[in-house]
Amino acid sequence: MTAADFGIIRELAYQHTGIVLPERKRHMVYSRLSRRRRLLRLGNFGEYCLKLQGDPRERAPFVTALRTNRSEGGRVGEGGSSAWLSWR
């Protein structure tokens, strides 16, 4: 994920959810969105960013991927916690 890709993802996350993604969350964002990118058979995050910008139907899976806090058992963390988020 390039710096430009992360910038686009940060902006879209803020626009559509109010989530603020600081630079220190870049690895987490990469990890959470990689599965979605592979599922869509996109070669890189630049292609995924174009998909996000051009296809409104991709917004819900994008937000879900960012907000889902999974434990090792594959379940949503206790109380569905999203403690890593910063809100506006």
Rank of each mutant, 00 (worst) to 15 (best):
A60F: 04
K51Y: 02
S34H: 08
Y48C: 00
N44L: 00
A3V: 12
E58V: 03
V63N: 05
G18K: 08
A83Y: 08
E58F: 04
F62R: 00
R38P: 06
E78V: 13
N44F: 00
G77S: 09
R32L: 01
F6P: 12
G80K: 06
V76F: 15
S86C: 08
R67P: 06
L50M: 11
S81W: 10
F62E: 05
S86T: 13
R37H: 02
L85F: 10
P56I: 01
E23A: 14
S82V: 10
S82K: 04
S71R: 08
L12Y: 13
L50W: 03
R59N: 14
Y14K: 15
G46T: 00
A83F: 13
Y48K: 00
A83R: 02
E78T: 15
A13V: 04
A4M: 09
G73T: 14
L40V: 02
L21N: 10
Q15G: 11
S81Q: 12
R67M: 10
T64S: 04
G54T: 08
M1R: 14
S34L: 08
S31F: 06
Y14G: 15
D5A: 06
P61E: 13
L39A: 15
Y48W: 07
H16W: 05
F45S: 00
G73F: 12
Q15I: 15
D5V: 03
L33H: 02
R88S: 12
R70N: 10
E47N: 00
E72V: 08
S71F: 03
T17G: 10
L21F: 09
L33E: 01
R75Q: 15
E47P: 00
L12H: 10
A65K: 04
